[in-house]
Nucleic acid binder design. Structure first.
Lengths: 231, 231
DNA sequence: CGAAGAGTTGATACACCTCAAGTCTTGTGG
DNA sequence: CCACAAGACTTGAGGTGTATCAACTCTTCG
């Protein structure tokens, strides 16, 4: 259950502002002001934060935890669009367009986030135009990310998509060890498949193949050790 | 060859401004001011407007014609990302991020566009913050479009992707006639394939199948008649 | 420790890709 | 305006890789 915590023990409001790119250009005074209108919310692992059945017209900014952003099509198949972490935001579609929300956002871990209502964010943008610039930058990065994903799904062979995924995950979730890079997987095999446009079985087989080739080592269901030399 | 036309016979500078969403909120006075810094360029059908070999750090706004925005991967395969028409812009990646340009933009028809240098656009955004808001809106629409494309390439069967393409094209390029919707195709079969993540042969076969089913009628290489009842 | 859920592996089917040959458009030049 | 050549498209045959279905094994967590 989501807990709203205008003043809660979990977080230092001041420090969390600094982690958010779209507010990075603000002065301390301005940040204090933004803190006034932020509502903190807390979600447990597995909870739905947003879905077409439960639309919320506000901007969500991730403060702690990880979420997946998913499209579910008519036949029930999921396509993962984003894996978001600290500093990332979502909910922009409802804020800047009239398009009804068609995404599902689910907490992959216990997650804490800041929310700002549409009305208050609009007012904020008018008052502190620098934020709009930062939002443009962030949106452009996101757009570039999606374009790369379109290229990948549309015209890259599956093996290459797997390599790219391992590269991405080693950067985002990997830790260097003496034997290689240890990746803490935030997704199940099925979710990996839904990210890559494949089936769970194919992902299994591809990972097994890479293990046989000595590229990586599967450590239980939730960790992968990338052997050095291959990135 | 690109022709720069600060004052040219092709275009009425004033009227073209009104067609561009990102400038739609401006007063006449402000529009006049924007017109001062715009450089018009003209490209012939088939010309490359932008490519990694010829990066240009400016915002491009389409005034007349159509362009395709493409990613080309190492093995030479093309993935079409966007088909842009009047009022659309591109070049935002170079403007808002430090990411080197990795797209190719090619004129599908004789094309006229407005360009604004990075420096002047930055100044403009500071001076007229409403523009930044409009840019956010447009970027969000583009992002939503790309997310739909990711969903489509990642988790929709090919037949459904074809249907979606026909729907999209009938809206963008179709004209109502007594027999159905006549689509003027801006793309070759190969380009359609590069848009859908398929091969030219598969597109041919799918279209032939739809023709056999009475859904559409192929009229030469560049037109499709969508028979009524099926959208 | 045990049960439920997640993952793996195998056999088979099928859809798309590849390669190749042939046909049709289209636009140009006579 | 017609003929023709080049390019675009279509069609066929065969191969490949991923999806599907099913049985089984392994992790994980209460």
């Amino acid at each position: 259950m989501a807990v709203s915590c205008q003043q809660c023990e979990f977080c230092n409001h001041h420090s969390c502002m600094h982690r958010v790119p779209i507010f990075s250009s603000l002065t301390n005074e301005e940040m204090k002001q933004v803190q006034q209108i932020i509502v903190h919310r807390y979600y447990k692992k597995g909870e739905y934060i947003l879905s077409p059945l439960k639309p919320m017209h506000c901007l969500f900014i991730l403060n702690e935890g990880k979420v997946k952003v998913v499209r579910v099509n008519q036949s029930g198949k999921e396509q993962i669009l984003y894996l978001l972490s600290i500093g990332d935001f979502f909910g922009e579609t409802a804020l800047f367009t009239g398009i009804p929300s068609d995404i599902v956002v689910e907490a992959l871990e216990d997650t804490r986030l800041c929310t700002i209502s549409k009305a208050q964010f609009s007012a904020l943008l008018k008052q502190l135009p620098d934020i709009a610039l930062k939002v443009c930058e962030e949106l452009t990065h996101r757009l570039h990310r999606m374009e790369t994903m379109v290229e990948s799904l549309g015209s890259k062979p599956v093996d290459e998509r797997m390599d790219d995924l391992l590269k991405e995950f080693s950067k985002k979730y990997g830790k260097y060890t003496s034997e290689g890079i240890l990746i803490q997987l935030p997704l199940s095999r099925e979710e990996l498949a839904n990210y890559l446009g494949l089936t769970r079985e194919t992902v299994s087989r591809k990972l097994a193949k890479l293990q046989n080739e000595g590229v990586l080592k599967l450590m239980g269901h939730k960790q992968i050790l990338l052997i050095h030399r291959k990135k």
